[in-house]
Amino acid sequence: MNLEYTFKVEGGNFSKAGVASSDVKKVLKKLNVGPKTIRRIVVSLYEAEINIIAHAYRGEILVKISENKVETTLKDSGPGIEDINKAMEEGYSTASPEVREMGFGAGMGLSNMNKNTDKLEITSEVGVGTTVKLMNWI
């Protein structure tokens, strides 16, 4: 089994947030993946999606589902992350006041992604963009 899905993400457009995670959830449910594993996968995907919307200009999500794992790559064009270690700290955020008002930008997103993935890789170039890879065994 090898399933692939791609999604486009528009920076700043919170009204479309969660489309990718919601679709992936439906697919994983049909594949009879356990509910706890599904929640981990979709929470990390949603957080990563929100990060693109909150910080970048645009991005693309590629989800690959195979027999025993889900691998997701989120690549954005955006400001990039200057200090990834700092960004990983719980409570650290560079989100705008508008984003915080919506209840995002509390500095918990990356640590949620870390907790809910079996492997997390972040690479970033300032002024160019960020690529996040999420991997979960299923």
């Binding site: 929640r39 209840g103 995002f104 918990m108 640590s111």
Partner: peptide, 12 residues
Amino acid sequence: DLLSDVLGNAQE
């Protein structure tokens, strides 16, 4: 009221 808090800590 923090969405990431709910994503991280709420029970099903």
